[in-house]
Design a protein around this nucleic acid. Structure first.
Lengths: 222, 222
DNA sequence: GTTACTTTCTTTACATGTATAAAAACTCGC
DNA sequence: GCGAGTTTTTATACATGTAAAGAAAGTAAC
């Protein structure tokens, strides 16, 4: 019995703000002015409270960002039609996650979280693991395969977006450019040969090709 | 002629500290007390200068960390004997980079740099690209292949080390644990089935397996 | 009511990276 | 030697995340 005798109000000082309000307001700020403008003070005044009050609803700023990512995923990560063939299901599910995350580059600092374990992403994880099992992998290998895909996906996004960020707030020659500039062709023939093409080549988006290769390799090994 | 007539001393106020001194001192601090203890103020006093003076030798703290990584790579990333077979050469070269970086987890914030373009890593990049070409890929596909490998490698390290870091400075139940706790087995049968094994499975180090799968897939595609 | 206890909120304070402006220390042309 | 120009160093200041302490606002037992 859910104790109807004791309506038992909550103890302690009643909260004036809620975790949800914190997240919602944070989202508004980020949507309107970008993640750089999201500071704890700004958020607090926007919400009509004090910075430290937020810390009763959110462990720290990083957790707030994780919650924002969750919120974002819940709103935009809709379950697509997946192919029946398990192998293609894996590819399409992974690509869907990648696409959603790539469109939302401010989460880079969060992306490095353990797995992508937002509740809304769970379905995709299930599809990937199940697809791998459907291709003949043992469940254990399927989990490993999922993680390998996740490493690749997270790495691609993190590397690409921080590279892009660096390029915007700084137009001095890249470290890479300097390295390529004084390259000894006799010691590094391939790199010297490719030097001129390196930048355009790395600018290409080859996530999907890499993903297909990775999945193919995972299945061949299993 | 290197103008011997004009010994041409450098203009302006002579520097009291050098970039090299900055990096060396920073390295000493990091080695002795960890990267968390490396602050610009601490570094300045250690060096007998002021915080802002450092900024004439280093663009900002991030660049300092990149330089530290370079320095680290130059000291520890020795060129191993590589197999003659190009495909194994790729695997061994990538694994060598991974091993060196994984042993030095504080560089995570730097790792997200564009490519791994430390001068000392160049040789490995050359080996990987050349190995892929040796397996029959076009130079363009080899570059893409290298980048795919790099995404996977960087992602693995970043995800793993930040997960580990999070675990040390916090022993509350993980987000993941909570997610797995209330998992609907009818909606997510695979994940529910694997829930108990998830943590040990993800704790396993499967970098090399994933790498081999990835290389195999890249070659099959090319 | 009064006291004890609990939770939330506020105040104050600190460490950190770094922007900005000014001072200091030098060379060069005269 | 002197002013102009250049580079490095210093002083000061600010924004940010968040720790620590305690005040505020409620419930429960008496």
């Amino acid at each position: 019995m859910p104790q109807p005798s004791a309506p038992r109000k909550t103890l302690g000082r009643p909260p004036r703000i809620s975790r949800e309000e914190v997240v919602t307001t944070a989202r508004r700020i980020v949507d309107a002015e970008g993640v750089d403008r999201l500071t704890m003070r700004r958020l607090a005044t926007e919400i009509g409270s004090t910075p430290m009050a937020l810390y009763h609803h959110v462990r720290n700023k990083e957790e707030l960002l994780v919650l924002l990512l969750d919120d974002y995923a819940a709103r935009t990560l809709h379950r697509p039609e997946l192919p029946a063939q398990p192998r293609e299901r894996v590819v399409v599910a992974a690509a869907a996650i990648h696409e959603a995350l790539a469109a939302c580059p401010w989460i880079v600092e969060v992306l490095t979280a353990d797995d992508l374990m937002s509740t809304s992403a769970l379905w995709f994880v299930e599809q990937i693991v199940d697809g791998l099992v459907g291709c003949g992998l043992t469940p254990e290998r399927a989990v490993h395969g999922y993680r390998t895909i996740w490493y690749y996906t997270a790495g691609e996004i993190v590397v690409r977006t921080t590279a892009a960020r660096r390029r915007t707030d700084d137009d001095r020659p890249t470290y890479r450019e300097r390295v390529f500039a004084d390259l000894d062709p006799s010691e590094f023939p391939r790199l010297a040969q490719l030097a001129a093409h390196w930048a355009p080549l790395t600018a290409e988006n080859t996530y999907l090709d890499g993903l297909r290769a990775l999945v193919e390799g995972l299945l061949a090994a299993g």
